[in-house]
Amino acid sequence: MTRIRRPSAQTTAVVLAFSEQPATWRYGYDLCQQLGLKAGSVYPILMRLADRGLLETAWEHEAPAGRPPRHLYRLTGPGRALAATLAAEATSRTVGRWPRLEGA
């Protein structure tokens, strides 16, 4: 089985924040505010998660006049699986390495 490094605490926080309402599209700035993280930390995490197929992205369809459409994010199936694993980890406090999820 291929193994990858355990996600950082910030990545874990981002994934768990998404998993609170997994079907809901989220905004980048709102995530920064919710987690108290800087954009310089959150956006690279979002990019990595999207690169690995854990996060799906879309553009807002109806933007207010005169403003650009916002980018939306939510977890994919593998992303939700990762969130479940991380949530279990947070509960059990087990330290170790994480198996790569299929499709990730």
Binding site: Y27, G28, Y29, A39, Y43, M47, T57, E60, A63, R67, P68, P69, R70, H71
Partner: peptide, 16 residues
């Protein structure tokens, strides 16, 4: 291949 992310961050900034 990352250009969309620049647009995404710009759009978020417009809301702040």
């Amino acid at each position: 291949d990352r250009r969309d992310w620049g647009a995404a961050m710009t759009a978020e900034l417009a809301r702040v």
